[in-house]
Amino acid sequence: MTYLEPLRAGYGLCQLTRPDFIAARILRHRLDSRATVVVRVLGARHLFQAAVIGLAPRSTFLHRAGAVVDLLHASTMVILALSDGRRRKAAFADAAVACFFATAELLSSAPPSKHGKPSRAT
């Protein structure tokens, strides 16, 4: 297992148990009741995704599927940010986090680097 699944699980656990923590401390934004429910659902999704990928951490398919889920999430957050001024700051921040996770998943799915190994050319 890489650093990614425990990081995702911790982030999801924070969203699930303290949905207002990131919004209040980092964004200086207060979540309404609807946003609180959505953040908790997203936290549960992160925990589920971390558990599934954690069961098969070398699965290229799971890492790439996780990246697709994260990119879909990021795109919905951008749409929300552009359409709802009250939620713009939080939505853009969540889109950035989703893009981070998508990038990390794609990097985790890449085959190991062969740098430093001698070539077998004849």
Results as ranks from 00 to 15, higher is better:
29 H>W: 03
49 Q>I: 03
60 T>G: 14
102 A>S: 06
43 G>A: 04
96 A>D: 02
44 A>G: 13
95 A>W: 10
46 H>K: 05
90 A>P: 02
116 G>A: 08
7 L>T: 14
26 I>W: 12
27 L>E: 07
86 R>H: 14
83 S>H: 08
7 L>I: 10
63 H>R: 06
78 V>W: 06
4 L>F: 11
49 Q>N: 09
55 L>R: 15
91 A>N: 00
54 G>M: 03
36 T>P: 02
25 R>A: 13
112 P>Q: 05
108 S>M: 10
77 M>L: 09
90 A>R: 10
80 L>F: 06
29 H>S: 03
104 A>C: 09
117 K>P: 00
9 A>R: 15
109 S>K: 01
11 Y>R: 01
59 S>C: 07
78 V>P: 09
70 D>E: 15
105 E>D: 15
47 L>C: 14
10 G>T: 07
106 L>D: 01
85 G>D: 14
113 S>D: 13
43 G>D: 04
69 V>L: 15
63 H>K: 00
82 L>W: 03
27 L>H: 05
38 V>K: 04
96 A>G: 14
91 A>I: 00
52 V>Y: 01
45 R>P: 00
19 P>K: 03
48 F>I: 09
13 L>H: 11
116 G>M: 08
95 A>G: 15
4 L>Q: 09
56 A>K: 13
22 I>F: 12
36 T>K: 07
30 R>G: 07
37 V>I: 14
29 H>Q: 11
99 C>G: 08
122 T>C: 04
90 A>T: 08
50 A>V: 00
43 G>Q: 05
34 R>S: 13
12 G>A: 07
36 T>N: 08
87 R>I: 00
88 R>N: 06
70 D>S: 12
17 T>Q: 14
14 C>L: 15
8 R>S: 10
2 T>C: 06
17 T>K: 13
5 E>L: 10
47 L>D: 10
17 T>G: 09
116 G>H: 14
34 R>A: 12
58 R>F: 09
108 S>H: 07
74 A>D: 01
25 R>C: 07
20 D>P: 00
51 A>Y: 13
63 H>C: 02
47 L>G: 11
101 F>V: 03
44 A>N: 06
36 T>S: 13
103 T>Y: 04
107 L>H: 08
77 M>S: 11
3 Y>G: 09
75 S>C: 08
64 R>A: 05
25 R>G: 07
83 S>N: 12
9 A>E: 14
112 P>K: 01
57 P>C: 03
27 L>I: 06
82 L>V: 10
113 S>W: 07
87 R>M: 11
63 H>P: 02
12 G>V: 03
103 T>F: 04
24 A>W: 03
5 E>N: 13
1 M>G: 12
32 D>Q: 07
70 D>M: 10
78 V>I: 15
73 H>G: 14
38 V>M: 12
4 L>G: 05
28 R>L: 06
62 L>F: 09
61 F>H: 05
103 T>M: 02
53 I>C: 10
29 H>N: 06
